[in-house]
Lab assay of single mutants.
Amino acid sequence: FSITQFVRNLGLEHLMDIFEREQITLRVLVEMGHKELKEIGINAYGHREKLIKGVERLI
Rank of each mutant, 00 (worst) to 15 (best):
5 Q>A: 12
48 R>E: 01
4 T>D: 11
14 H>G: 08
24 I>A: 02
37 L>N: 02
37 L>Y: 05
3 I>R: 02
20 E>F: 08
1 F>D: 10
32 M>N: 02
23 Q>W: 06
17 D>K: 13
57 R>Q: 13
7 V>L: 15
59 I>W: 09
17 D>R: 11
12 L>W: 01
29 L>I: 06
42 I>C: 05
2 S>A: 09
54 G>A: 14
45 Y>M: 09
37 L>A: 01
12 L>M: 08
42 I>M: 04
44 A>W: 12
42 I>L: 05
13 E>G: 12
49 E>T: 09
34 H>C: 04
11 G>P: 00
21 R>N: 07
31 E>V: 13
40 I>E: 00
17 D>F: 15
48 R>V: 06
58 L>Y: 13
34 H>K: 02
58 L>A: 06
38 K>T: 10
15 L>C: 05
23 Q>R: 15
9 N>V: 11
45 Y>F: 14
43 N>S: 13
39 E>Y: 08
5 Q>Y: 09
42 I>K: 04
50 K>C: 11
51 L>S: 00
33 G>Y: 03
27 R>A: 12
49 E>C: 12
30 V>M: 15
26 L>K: 01
29 L>K: 02
30 V>Y: 11
55 V>R: 05
51 L>G: 00
47 H>F: 08
18 I>C: 04
26 L>S: 03
43 N>T: 14
35 K>R: 10
28 V>P: 01
52 I>Q: 02
27 R>Q: 12
43 N>C: 14
9 N>M: 14
21 R>W: 05
33 G>N: 07
49 E>N: 09
47 H>D: 15
28 V>E: 12
26 L>Q: 02
9 N>P: 03
57 R>D: 12
35 K>L: 07
11 G>A: 06
38 K>Y: 09
38 K>L: 13
30 V>L: 12
49 E>D: 10
55 V>K: 05
7 V>I: 14
57 R>F: 10
11 G>W: 01
10 L>N: 02
20 E>I: 14
6 F>I: 05
54 G>W: 06
41 G>V: 05
55 V>W: 06
35 K>I: 06
50 K>W: 07
34 H>Q: 03
3 I>H: 01
40 I>K: 05
4 T>E: 14
7 V>H: 00
47 H>Q: 14
24 I>G: 01
25 T>Q: 06
10 L>W: 03
32 M>T: 01
44 A>N: 15
43 N>Y: 13
33 G>L: 04
39 E>D: 12
39 E>R: 11
29 L>S: 01
39 E>I: 08
27 R>E: 11
58 L>V: 07
13 E>K: 07
13 E>N: 09
58 L>D: 02
22 E>L: 06
9 N>R: 13
29 L>R: 02
56 E>D: 07
26 L>A: 04
16 M>N: 08
20 E>K: 11
55 V>A: 12
41 G>E: 02
6 F>N: 00
44 A>R: 11
8 R>P: 00
14 H>D: 11
2 S>Y: 08
25 T>S: 10
40 I>F: 05
51 L>H: 05
54 G>L: 06
58 L>Q: 05
18 I>M: 05
30 V>G: 10
6 F>L: 09
49 E>K: 12
59 I>Q: 11
22 E>D: 06
33 G>M: 03
11 G>I: 02
19 F>G: 00
54 G>K: 04
2 S>K: 07
55 V>D: 01
47 H>K: 06
26 L>C: 09
54 G>E: 08
29 L>E: 00
14 H>S: 11
44 A>V: 12
17 D>P: 15
29 L>D: 01
34 H>Y: 04
39 E>K: 11
38 K>V: 08
24 I>C: 03
5 Q>E: 15
11 G>M: 05
11 G>C: 07
28 V>D: 14
52 I>N: 00
48 R>Y: 05
5 Q>L: 10
37 L>F: 07
53 K>P: 00
51 L>E: 00
10 L>Q: 04
14 H>Y: 13
49 E>W: 08
37 L>G: 01
8 R>D: 04
26 L>P: 03
36 E>F: 05
23 Q>P: 05
40 I>N: 02
43 N>F: 13
30 V>K: 14
43 N>K: 14
46 G>I: 15
53 K>Y: 07
38 K>M: 13
8 R>T: 14
23 Q>Y: 07
25 T>L: 03
40 I>W: 04
50 K>I: 13
53 K>T: 08
19 F>M: 06
21 R>A: 09
23 Q>M: 10
36 E>P: 03
26 L>H: 03
26 L>G: 02
44 A>S: 15
22 E>K: 13
39 E>F: 08
21 R>G: 05
48 R>F: 06
55 V>Y: 07
10 L>M: 08
40 I>Y: 04
53 K>C: 09
1 F>A: 09
35 K>G: 06
6 F>W: 07
7 V>D: 00
59 I>V: 11
26 L>M: 13
13 E>R: 07
57 R>E: 12
27 R>L: 12
6 F>Y: 05
33 G>K: 09
35 K>S: 10
15 L>F: 05
35 K>C: 07
40 I>A: 06
41 G>S: 03
54 G>S: 08
12 L>F: 04
19 F>P: 01
16 M>D: 05
29 L>F: 04
17 D>V: 14
31 E>P: 08
51 L>I: 15
8 R>F: 10
6 F>M: 05
46 G>F: 13
30 V>H: 08
51 L>A: 01
14 H>N: 09
46 G>C: 15
47 H>N: 14
43 N>L: 15
44 A>M: 10
46 G>P: 11
37 L>T: 01
59 I>N: 10
21 R>H: 06
23 Q>C: 10
17 D>A: 14
55 V>S: 08
4 T>K: 13
48 R>G: 02
32 M>H: 01
47 H>W: 11
25 T>K: 05
51 L>Q: 01
12 L>N: 01
38 K>G: 06
55 V>C: 14
53 K>A: 10
33 G>A: 04
26 L>T: 03
8 R>V: 10
18 I>R: 04
6 F>A: 02
15 L>G: 00
11 G>D: 07
57 R>W: 12
18 I>Q: 03
39 E>C: 08
41 G>F: 04
2 S>Q: 10
27 R>N: 12
7 V>K: 00
21 R>Q: 08
58 L>G: 02
41 G>P: 01
28 V>A: 13
47 H>Y: 09
31 E>M: 14
8 R>I: 11
20 E>R: 13
35 K>F: 07
3 I>E: 00
46 G>V: 15
24 I>E: 01
35 K>E: 11
10 L>V: 06
52 I>W: 03
58 L>T: 04
49 E>M: 13
16 M>G: 08
12 L>H: 00
15 L>I: 08
23 Q>A: 12
44 A>Y: 14
25 T>R: 04
52 I>R: 06
53 K>I: 09
14 H>A: 10
51 L>T: 00
18 I>T: 06
50 K>F: 06
28 V>H: 15
55 V>F: 09
29 L>W: 04
59 I>F: 13
13 E>A: 12
7 V>N: 00
1 F>R: 06
34 H>F: 04
8 R>A: 11
4 T>W: 12
22 E>V: 05
52 I>P: 01
7 V>Q: 00
24 I>Y: 03
44 A>L: 13
50 K>N: 05
31 E>W: 11
5 Q>D: 15
8 R>E: 07
57 R>K: 13
9 N>S: 15
7 V>G: 00
33 G>I: 04
59 I>A: 09
28 V>R: 15
10 L>T: 02
3 I>G: 01
4 T>N: 11
33 G>T: 07
12 L>I: 05
31 E>F: 12
27 R>G: 12
3 I>K: 00
4 T>F: 14
25 T>M: 04
16 M>Y: 06
54 G>N: 07
52 I>T: 02
32 M>V: 03
1 F>V: 10
53 K>G: 06
3 I>L: 14
15 L>Q: 01
30 V>E: 08
4 T>M: 12
42 I>N: 03
13 E>D: 11
24 I>Q: 02
30 V>S: 14
44 A>F: 12
42 I>S: 01
9 N>I: 13
47 H>S: 13
39 E>W: 07
5 Q>G: 08
4 T>C: 13
59 I>M: 14
5 Q>I: 10
41 G>C: 06
44 A>I: 13
37 L>V: 02
54 G>I: 05
24 I>W: 04
32 M>C: 03
21 R>I: 05
2 S>P: 09
46 G>D: 15
19 F>H: 00
14 H>R: 08
35 K>Y: 08
49 E>L: 13
28 V>L: 12
